[in-house]
Nucleic acid binder design. Sequence first.
DNA 1: TTGAATTATGGTCAAATGACCAAGTTTTTA
DNA 2: TAAAAACTTGGTCATTTGACCATAATTCAA
Lengths: 192, 192
Amino acid sequence: MLPEFESYLKKNADFPEEVIKAMYDLAIVKTLKRNESLLQAGDVCRYKVFIAKGLLRCYVTGGNGNEHILQFCPENSWTLDVESYDNQIPATTNIAAIEPSVVLLWTKSDFEKLRIDFPILKQFSEILISRSIYQNRHRVATTLSATPEEKYEDFVTRYPNLLSRLPLHMIAAYMGISLKTLTRIRHSQLNR
Amino acid sequence: MLPEFESYLKKNADFPEEVIKAMYDLAIVKTLKRNESLLQAGDVCRYKVFIAKGLLRCYVTGGNGNEHILQFCPENSWTLDVESYDNQIPATTNIAAIEPSVVLLWTKSDFEKLRIDFPILKQFSEILISRSIYQNRHRVATTLSATPEEKYEDFVTRYPNLLSRLPLHMIAAYMGISLKTLTRIRHSQLNR
DNA sequence: TTGAATTATGGTCAAATGACCAAGTTTTTA
DNA sequence: TAAAAACTTGGTCATTTGACCATAATTCAA
């Protein structure tokens, strides 16, 4: 049993021991090296992913080949390509490790089984879904209405702990601006 | 009974007559004039909204006062400020009519009651939630990675029927570009 | 139906942004 | 530990974009 996994589910969802055990028994534990890929666009997203240690990114690649990051996924968070997972169709996003990481994986059928067996898991899933909806809505609103400076402010206040773990070019890829613009913002903030 | 509402639920969700009837009995029917507001940022979103006729927009206003449109809501679609509705807290978005419209409204408690009484409604809600998640994800990806031209192409192909019903400045406000840029794109497309 | 409001387009100019390149620093990995 | 890779910052320049303004066409509302 991974202690990170156990303590996360106890603290955040108040799961009884037996549920955690049952989940863990069906999980695949996987270790990822820095930059190792977990899902490539075009492949089917076969697993629901819990990040126990490390940091992943979920991204798309534009026509010119550069990355645009949809989500950073640090320890104690979940990720997947929803549409691909739900319908078992090819994914449009990529998932890869930024830091060396440890993840738990469940196939869709295994996770569905767990959700039926343990209503508390179904309930917790729905909370996670809500959160992700709120987050995506905020993301759309910010991306549309905020200036680059405001986006950076927003990022810094929302994810202060990620700031030091990420290379700037990835923060720029998340904010939807060039690295140059980001360093310009940081430069101008020094003189204030 | 509004025939639009009835035929929507029969066609799209295969609801039995009695469910539709029960829903309609708890609904508030409201007529909106062009530009009339249904929800203002700061107020609590008390209702789940079904658009039976017309066209609404859901938008936020940036610091400089200009609109950024999150969603167009034509007839036979649903809308609300989710986070405000779920938690009955002040909304961050506004909802207003673009065309004269007719909407059905349910309070959260009434809708919850309906969802408990009729499992088919709960099931249908979950489909709608999934769709909205996919849509939001696509929106974030497009907003980040597409050029203005590509965003316009995407809009035209995804919402061909809305194109002629919307003033260009609203399409620009949806795409996150200025009206000027949008007319420039359209101009350059003429010469091709 | 007619006056008022809204809308679409275009011109000009300043500002913001990205592409490309280079250099010094830090981190990774063999 | 040492070489290689990745990262941060900065410079320059061309391009894109937005702000502001004006005008003609269209649509709305009394």
